[in-house]
Structures are given as C-alpha cells and as structure tokens.
Amino acid sequence: MSTFLDISNIDMDFPTPNGPFKALKEVNLKINKGEFVSLIGHSGCGKSTVLNIVAGLYQATKGGVILNSTEVAEPGPERAVVFQNHSLLPWLTAYQNVELAVKQVFQKKMNKAEMKQWIEHNLKLVHMDHAMHKRPSEISGGMKQRVGIARALAMQPDVLLMDEPFGALDALTRAHMQDSLMEIQNELNNTVIMITHDVDEAVLLSDKIVMMTNGPAATVGEILEVNLPRPRARLALAEDKEYNRLRAEVLKFLYEKQRKVENINISKSSISDNETADVG
C-alpha cells in the first residue's frame, strides 16, 4: 500500500513569555488509506498538537504534512475534525448542524433533495435520526458526540480526525459509541486518526497504535500493529491472547518506558491487567 497521509519531520514551537516551548520534535508518521490509527500518550505530550497540525489549525514550525500528494496549508473539510466537546453550534438543531457542513461541501454537487437525503443518511448512520430536530441542549452528551461524528462523516473527508471523541462520556456510553464507530468503519472504511486516553479503546478500534513519548520535545515512541481480525467483538476479545498481549504492550510503554514521574501515585504504579487502564 502507498502512503496516503505523510507526516514528516514535524517540529512545533509554541511562543511563551519565557521563550519558545518545543512541544514536538521530529514527529514522523505514515498512514495508509483506510487505516484506523490511534494516538496514545500521557496528558500534555502533544497529541492534540499533532492532530491540529494535520487539520491545518496549527502551522508546524518545521516539517509538513502531505495528504494525497498535496501539502496541507490550511484547514479544510477534506480533513474533518471531531472535537472533544462536540462543538456543535448550540443555536442549530442536529439536522441543521449537519446541513451547514453539507451545504458548504456539496453546494455544487447536490441539489436540495439529495442534500436532505445525505444529511438524513448520515444522522441515521450514527443512530440519531430520531432526534434530528433537537438542539444540542436538548440531547445527551453521547448524542451530541454522535451528531458531531455525523457532521464530520457527512463531509466525506479523506481523513477523519478525532480528538478524544469519547473522552467526556461515561464508560457505558463510551462502549456503545465504540461499537457504533466500528460498525460505521466496517461500512465506510475511512482513514482515521483518533486520540485516546483509553488503552482498551485503542486496541479495540485501531489498525495501528502510535505511542508518543512524554513532552517537551515529544515524538513518536513506538508503533504497534494491531492485526486482530474484524469485525471485532468486545466480549470475545477479553479472552483473546493476542488482544491481551497488545494491551500489555501499550501499558508497558506507558507505565514503564514513559512513566510520568511527577504524576504517578501508588495506585497507578501498581496497575495490573484487570484494572481499568486510563492514561493521564
């Protein structure tokens, strides 16, 4: 497979009152078309910064991103972003939020009826067709996140960028959303970069887990290929040997190789396989 998204030699310096702060140093990552990649690492290491550079929302100090043989210079709908806190426009209904994106991206390619159909199709995909005409304030956190995903999917992006899409949700809702996302991914086979704090989520969803070292000057530490067959079932995998090996690898990276000394307390340093593994 050829490289679809190429992040090469990225440095990121943030200006601060005490001179520049080097958040990222020489980040390199190649992603193939249709691949689902998770970014994992301790809080503040620079995951969001990487994602924002790919989105074009930040400008890298050095290096660059090439998507589909064109260099990324500014944000655009071909790199749709799902933000951590849904960021739906509170004055628009779920339908209107998706509509804003669809109108913008497909204004020349679709007529009114086709747009309507496409909006409804995407809301159906995330199981939100029953609450299409509700405002964000009238639906739950998980539902808002679903609409955010529908909005991103409706842009038909080349890459879907998700910054901790389920970070703000409770464990049950999160599991539900992960299942939904796998189901959608089976159908659409998008190229996805997802930031997560959740080791299980990373192993369950990804084709590749990119583990980042701690900042400052963070970079890609290790890349773990996940070759578990799809479709994946959460319960069956709990007993799976390969699944547990992969999970242990990630935990080892995070809690041995990249131990966050200042943040560690007793319960975290003695983390075992049956404890919930949440980073950060």
């Binding site: 929302l57 500014e74 944000p75 655009g76 709908p77 972003v81 933000f83 960021s87 426009l89 913008q104």
Partner: peptide, 12 residues
C-alpha cells in the same frame, strides 16, 4: 468559543 471558530475554519 474557539472550538466553534475552528469548526468554521474546517468548513472554510
């Protein structure tokens, strides 16, 4: 909210 501004930027 800067997130809303970012949405607008992504949508161009």
């Amino acid at each position: 909210d800067s997130d809303l501004v970012n949405v607008s930027r992504v949508l161009r």
